[in-house]
C-alpha cells in the first residue's frame, strides 16, 4: 500500500472534515475498499476521531470495510423487483457464485450484494454488474450474465451472428469475395487506401464479427479511405462512427438496408441500418 495516498487524498480535499464523504469515496476508489490502516491514517491527517469516521463508514452501504471482488453484482430486492421474482434471481446468484449476499468469491472475482431499490422499478427484476444494468432478468440468464462479466465487458454485445451480402452503392456490383473466406463465409472485399498506399482489405461478412485481413497493416487507429474495388468510388457515407467519430463507409444490402463500417482501423464501429429508403430500394 502506498503510504502517501491517503495523505494526498486528504490534502486534495483541503484537510477539512466537510469533505469526509468525498475523502472516503476517494480512498475507496483507490483501494477498492476501506482498509483499517487507511482510516487510521485519515483520522490522523484530518484530526478527526476514528470513532466518527467509523460511524459514517458503517452507516453508508456504499462503503465497504472488507476487500471487494473485481466485479460487483448488485441484485435489486426492492418492492417492485421483489414481486417480480427478484428473490429467486438472488438465490440463483448465491447458488452459482457459492457465496452469500455481501460476500466475495475466494478468487476475488465477484462480490455479491443485494440492494433495496435502484429506482428503475419498471425494468425489474434488475441486476447491475459493474455499472451495467440488466433488466427483466430471468433465472436462466444468470449464468450468461456471469459468463459475460468474466469474459470482459469490452467484448461485442451483439451475440446474434449472421452473414451479410453487400454491394457497392454506386455501381451496385457485389462486394462479396468467396475466394477469401473469413469466419467460414465469403468476405467483403474493399480497397483500402492510406497514406498514398492502396491494397485490398477483406472484412468478415459475419455480422458481429470484427475480423479483417489485409496485407500491409496500417498503424492502429489510422483513418483510411475505403473504396469499391470494382468502380473505385469512395464508399464514405454521411454518418459518423458512434465509437470514435470518424467517417463511416456505406455498403448496400438488399432492399435498401445499409451496412456502415468505421473507416478507422481497429475501431469496432459497425452499424446495420435496416430502414428502407426509397432512393436505395431496388
Amino acid at each position: 500500500m502506498d503510504d502517501r495516498t491517503v495523505e494526498t487524498i486528504v490534502a486534495e480535499h483541503h484537510g477539512s472534515l466537510g469533505g469526509m464523504l468525498s475523502i472516503l469515496t476517494a480512498i475507496q476508489s483507490e483501494y477498492g475498499y476501506l482498509p483499517e490502516d487507511a482510516l487510521r491514517r485519515m483520522a490522523a491527517a484530518t484530526g478527526e476521531s476514528l470513532t466518527d469516521i467509523y460511524a459514517v463508514v458503517t452507516f453508508y452501504k456504499a462503503f465497504s470495510l472488507k476487500p471487494r471482488g473485481k466485479h460487483l453484482v448488485s441484485v435489486c430486492l426492492g418492492t417492485a423487483c421483489h414481486v417480480r421474482g427478484a428473490p429467486k434471481i438472488a438465490e440463483e446468484f448465491i447458488g452459482q457464485l457459492g457465496i452469500a449476499s455481501g460476500e466475495t468469491t475466494p478468487d476475488k472475482e465477484f462480490t455479491l450484494e443485494t440492494v433495496n431499490c435502484l429506482g428503475a422499478c419498471a425494468l425489474g427484476p434488475i441486476v447491475v454488474v459493474d455499472g451495467r444494468y440488466y433488466s427483466n432478468v430471468r433465472k436462466n440468464q444468470v449464468a450468461e450474465i456471469l459468463k459475460r462479466t468474466r469474459e470482459g465487458l469490452d467484448q461485442p454485445r451483439e451475440n446474434r451472428r449472421f452473414p451479410l451480402s453487400v454491394r457497392c452503392p454506386h455501381c451496385r456490383q457485389s462486394l462479396m469475395d468467396a475466394a477469401h473466406p473469413i469466419d467460414n463465409v465469403p468476405s467483403i472485399r474493399l480497397t483500402m487506401s492510406w497514406d498514398g498506399d492502396s491494397q485490398p482489405l477483406y472484412l468478415s461478412s459475419l455480422h458481429g464479427s470484427l475480423r479483417s485481413v489485409c496485407e500491409r497493416e496500417t498503424p492502429a487507429h489510422s483513418i483510411t479511405v475505403l473504396a469499391c474495388p470494382m468502380c473505385g468510388q469512395d464508399l464514405v457515407g454521411d454518418s459518423r462512427c458512434s465509437e470514435c467519430g470518424a467517417d463511416m463507409a456505406r455498403m448496400t444490402i438488399d432492399k435498401g438496408a445499409t451496412l456502415m463500417v468505421c473507416t478507422r482501423r481497429g475501431c469496432a464501429g459497425r452499424r446495420l441500418n435496416l430502414e428502407t429508403t426509397p432512393a436505395e430500394a431496388d
Binding site: S49, L50, T51, D52, I53, Y54, A55, T58, F59
Partner: peptide, 25 residues
C-alpha cells in the same frame, strides 16, 4: 476521549469502538 461511538444503522446499530478493537484513546 471519544473512544466509543455509534456504528452501523437500523437494527444493526450498536455502540462500541471502531473495528471492535481496544481504542487507543
Amino acid at each position: 476521549a471519544k473512544a466509543i461511538g455509534f456504528r452501523g444503522r437500523g437494527e444493526k446499530r450498536s455502540i462500541g469502538t471502531p473495528f471492535d478493537v481496544p481504542s487507543e484513546v
